[in-house]
Design a protein around this nucleic acid. Structure first.
Lengths: 227, 227
DNA sequence: GTGCACATGATTGTATACAACATCGGCCAC
DNA sequence: GTGGCCGATGTTGTATACAATCATGTGCAC
């Protein structure tokens, strides 16, 4: 297993660390999350690990199988459609609200976010880049000053990261940043209507860049492996 | 023969029972949820109670205060606005989708739902009526065949119930049912655009029937009490 | 050699014991 | 009499021990 920050902490700390690892694709879908293993890695007792896993389970980031353990979630094709449908309802209008409340400081912060994403990409840290790309969306909800929507969007964004891990079609994730750049321009111009439309199209583009034909890429990918 | 109910008392069962009680206003906001007390009531150990309370805490239905215990959540005025803002983004478009997928069986089921709500109201069970009224909204998301949105809406609806408990202005909850009746008519006519508009207005009406002036009705309502 | 039965080991589910902390009462100083 | 200090009591936080369940590997029968 990849090295996870052996940073001792509370159950929430563990949950956040695991969520980051999932978001950054360091823990791919289907990975078994053994309780003893995690308790040794984080240096905390199983009680806290269980609490963390339960939290992630409620957010649909891990799937719990009774008496078998916890695994990083493997969203189905149907779930993938549903997650992006929910995002399509929430994020465009939220982007509009954000554009209205946007300050110059917000714009520069968003730009810095994109720069960091590019830097991570050039450093070969594609997982970190993807994570930053997702946080861009969360940041918009935060600027819109809607913490409830922000929490929902955050959950949907991390689930989207799992979906991308399973169903991404092209290798390069570069194309995205253009959409984010265009969004920043709209924000800088305080053009709420444009931001809303750009966000809607951006989400549509995301879905179409997935391969969501029913293929049940679950464990039984025998036919694909034997071809 | 008390074994008739299979698995009566898992953590999920306890959580569902508590959520129902909260939704029906049998547990008003601010109620202390003592672990020992609950473990005796449900006849299960504290471990399961804690798991249930954690689950409700993640759904923002109970607030956890460290070393002090769990309390039924008391949404602030700001949270109230945020919850209805999120619902305003999700539910109208979902109602439109539901109208398209609506079958005659669905329509009669929704009508039965409203009838049950009226019956509960006339029986003096106002809490149960409110709960059924909320489930009407959840049912629509289910008909739209969007389980992810359904889960989010469910959470928002129960939080709305808490908000209503704290900030409801008028005593009578009768007026609502008219909105639901009009929605059913739109569904029966498979008029998605109308359903979307009706739902949007229904949610706006709900907000305006709340008293959301900053009053911090939290424990420290000293100024109000001393006036 | 194949397939089933069973024993073994490992992992999770649950309960309970103990430690840490907050609340509340009385007591004392001022 | 007011205010603060400080034990007594109860509640929550955490760890650990034990039970239940699943996965694995061996051996036997066919």
């Amino acid at each position: 297993m990849t090295e996870i920050q052996p940073k001792s902490g509370t159950a929430d700390t563990v949950a956040e660390s695991l969520e980051r690892a999932i978001h950054e694709h360091r823990l791919p879908p289907g990975t078994k999350l053994g309780e003893d293993e995690l308790s040794e890695i984080y240096g905390v007792s199983r009680t806290r690990i269980r609490a963390a896993l339960q939290a992630l389970s409620h957010r649909r980031l891990v799937e719990h199988q009774r008496n078998r353990g916890a695994f990083v979630a493997q969203p189905t094709v149907r779930e993938a459609h549903e997650v992006f449908e929910a995002r399509a309802l929430l994020e465009p209008r939220t982007a509009r609200s954000a554009a209205i409340r946007m300050t110059d400081a917000h714009v520069t912060a968003l730009q810095a976010h994109i720069d960091a994403e590019h830097a991570a990409l050039h450093a070969g840290e594609s997982g970190r880049a993807l994570s930053l790309s997702g946080e861009f969306h969360i940041e918009i909800a935060r600027i819109a000053d809607q913490s409830t929507i922000e929490a929902i969007v955050q959950q949907l964004v991390v689930r989207s990261s799992l979906i991308i891990a399973l169903y991404w079609r092209r290798r390069a994730a570069l194309c995205e940043s253009h959409a984010h750049g265009a969004l920043i321009d709209a924000f800088a111009a305080r053009d709420g209507a444009l931001a809303e439309e750009l966000m809607a199209h951006h989400l549509l583009d995301l879905v179409t860049s997935l391969d969501l034909r029913n293929q049940s890429s679950q464990p039984g990918s025998l036919k694909a492996a034997l071809a």
